[in-house]
Design a protein around this nucleic acid. Structure first.
Length: 620
RNA sequence: GGAGCUGUAGCUCAAUUCGGUUAGAGCGCUGGCCUGUCACGCCAGAGGUCGCGGGUUCAAGUCCCGUCAGCUCCGCCA
């Protein structure tokens, strides 16, 4: 790839010809004399009269024929640069061939702009750089999209030319915010006695949980490392080591389908502490988040955060990560239907779930809007969704005819429906299903009808179930992870009724986003064995997969626990972005590909041979 | 694996219910004019496989079927 390209010759000709003297190329390369003496966003009125050198990108060109203005950009801002033919005919002549995104070094004098030509929109708008001389450090091809307002540009294109996308002001700001967040984070935890310790990226595959990214080992043919889904086991073992307080800003890898808030590699603020209870972790996390939001946004967060048990969150909001910015809550209205003659009577008696969601002002919904809503509920798995409308004080809806006065007034007092409201009714044998579907409707209604208030609403969700029955594998799986401690109150059910056991896990939720989660861990190897037993691991399987942890726990383990915060989601919310891709420098698209590098890609057979790997299809 | 939205010039988008002349605009680009602009202005110009394939029709950017790509969501994500 070395050699002189035609284009280089052309550029040399265009830009260096004026400096050919006696047939010899003058030395116009970038040396210290061309290094910037100030940034492009820096010049102020008090700098006028100063000699200055600016380095940056040509962002905007205004060629008035006689006089040429350009804006020179770097990450700090822009300065207007003036080429005046009366003062420097040679530079003015060369400047007419400058184009967008050329990289320039410009020498001249900072001067006050002539009266009446100041630009108050610009931080540097009271001054400009009058050019003495300049060199083109690098020309630019025609750019594939405009950098100034690329917000609406096709994201695929943005990702392909990510380095151009990142030249945009909003992306620069996002990267800077992310940097400020990580810096604040390191300082905060450092100041509170936490030590940042790196853990391996090449580690052992743990089939529990998400799919692993595997890395073949050349020197151990047929064997694979896995990239860590999180440093979970290492940080626990660091507690065994006596490190006491650990934190790490660390990449994690999960090979699952992507979403706006999920990337195959993402960053966690990973935290673990010894000799603590839930209260310590929650307290230190709240203090961290409140301090962070104040530091970055100047926003005061109220502490302590609201706390809901998982059951309460599901009952009231139909979600384990409720968005408290939407004021609507769900109500249990089964008693209204129990014991009467109505379509839900049987369900109510059997202990099924009947939930109501009051929509203030919802009585004005059209028949079509109501049926669209019901169809959306059906698409989510509901059998149907009934409604009541309160019009002119009177209750209307398909179920009204089944309810007598007493039951109607019970419905009113339970749900608080008033004139002009709608009440949506979700009934199902499964409590969880009824809650989740109506909770989803709550979210959609809240967003569509502008009921989401502008604020940051933090909360803790606690007392998650420890295990969850998995129909597919016909066994219990860990809701959080298999090292989470059960609540002491529920210990007796660990082996008899695993589904009933609550865990000492907690999630921190912000505006409907799970931004972190953690737990108190099991620090007793016997208890850990029991947990594996409940998960239907044979002792051999447990030893094979997690033997090193069990052994570690057996050498004197402090009670410990921790939390992992999703840095990408946190920064996304702080920046007001809709996707974590907008706060990552080089993210993947929904197919986990990078349009810029074209990863993942095929590799040469030689590479595979060295790794003792055969692909099923002849891929190359 | 499933559902939805989108795909027209380099970029962002139009193209009228229920198909009808040569597919338009703004920005960008090229050339010309222009000495105080800052979304500079004015004039001229280049630029299109309407994602791709098939079908219906006298006629398809528009209707139908299939397919590809991007995004959003469900499943999945200890």
């Amino acid at each position: 790839m070395e050699g002189v390209f035609a284009s280089e010759i052309i550029w040399t000709t265009i830009f260096f010809r004026p400096f050919l003297k006696e047939g010899k190329l003058m030395e116009r390369y970038y040396d210290s004399s061309w290094q910037r003496t100030m940034f492009c966003g820096q010049a102020r009125l008090e700098d006028s009269g100063r000699e200055a050198v600016l380095n940056g990108w040509l962002r905007c060109r205004r060629d008035l024929g006689g006089i040429i203005f350009i804006e020179l950009w770097d990450k700090t801002g822009v300065t207007q640069v003036v080429f005046n033919p009366e003062l420097n005919a040679e530079a003015h002549k060369r400047a007419s061939s400058l184009r967008s995104e050329y990289v320039l070094a410009v020498k001249g004098t900072i001067r006050k702009r002539p009266e009446g030509t100041e630009n108050p929109e610009l931080a540097t708008g009271s001054v400009e750089l009058l050019v003495d001389d300049f060199i083109v450090l690098s020309p630019s091809k025609l750019i594939p999209f405009e950098i100034d307002n690329a917000d609406s540009v096709n994201e695929d294109l943005r990702l392909k030319y990510r380095y151009l996308d990142l030249r945009r002001e909003t992306m620069q700001k996002n990267l800077m915010t992310r940097h400020r967040v990580t810096r604040y984070t390191r300082n905060y935890f450092g100041d509170n006695g936490f030590m940042e310790i790196e853990t391996p990226m090449l580690t052992k595959s743990t089939p529990e949980g998400a799919r692993d990214y595997l890395v073949p080992s050349r020197v151990n043919p047929g064997k694979f490392y896995a990239l860590p889904q999180s440093p979970q086991l290492f940080k626990q073992l660091l507690m065994v080591s006596g490190c006491d307080r650990y934190m790490q800003i660390v990449k994690c890898f999960r090979d699952e389908d992507l979403r706006a808030d999920r990337q195959p590699e993402f960053t966690q603020i990973d935290v673990e502490m010894s000799f603590i209870t839930e209260e310590d972790i929650m307290g230190i996390t709240e203090k961290y988040l409140a301090g962070l939001f104040y530091e970055i946004l100047g926003h005061k967060v109220e502490t302590p955060f609201v706390r809901l048990t998982w059951k309460e969150a599901m009952d009231l909001y139909g979600s384990d990560k409720p968005d408290l910015r939407i004021p609507m809550q769900m109500t249990d209205i089964a008693p209204v239907f129990a014991g009467g003659e109505n379509p839900f009577a049987g369900l109510a008696v059997k202990g099924g779930t009947i939930k109501g969601l009051r929509l203030p002002g919802g009585a004005s919904l059209s028949r079509k809007e109501l049926s669209d809503l019901e169809n959306r509920a059906k698409a989510l798995g509901a059998k149907g969704m009934a409604n009541f409308l309160v019009k002119e004080g009177e209750l209307k809806g398909p179920l009204v005819k089944f309810l007598d006065e007493d039951r109607i007034s019970m419905l009113r007092s339970l749900t608080g429906i008033e004139d002009g409201d709608a009440l949506f009714v979700m009934a199902d044998e499964s409590w969880r299903k009824a809650c989740e579907i109506l909770g989803q409707i709550r979210l959609e209604l809240g967003r569509e009808r502008g009921m989401v208030e502008e604020s940051f609403r933090f909360l803790w969700v606690t007392e998650f179930p420890l295990f969850e029955w998995d129909e597919e594998t016909e066994r219990y799986t860990a809701v959080h992870h298999p090292f989470t401690a059960p609540m002491n109150e529920d210990l007796e059910y660990l082996l008899t009724e695993p589904g009933r056991v609550r865990s000492r896990a907690y999630d921190v939720v912000l505006n409907g986003n799970e931004i972190g989660g953690g737990s108190i861990r099991i620090h007793d190897p016997e208890m850990q064995q029991k947990a594996f037993q409940a998960l239907n691991f044979t002792p051999e399987a447990a030893k094979e997969r997690f033997g090193f942890l069990l052994e570690g726990l057996s050498f004197g383990t402090p009670p410990h626990g921790g939390i992992a915060l999703g840095l990408d989601r946190l920064v996304m919310l702080i920046c007001g972005c809709k996707s974590i891709r907008d706060v990552m420098a080089f993210p993947k698209n929904q197919k986990a590909q990078c349009p810029m590098t074209d990863a993942p890609s095929f590799v040469e057979k030689k590479q595979l041979d060295e790794l003792s790997i055969k692909t099923v299809e002849p891929l190359i």
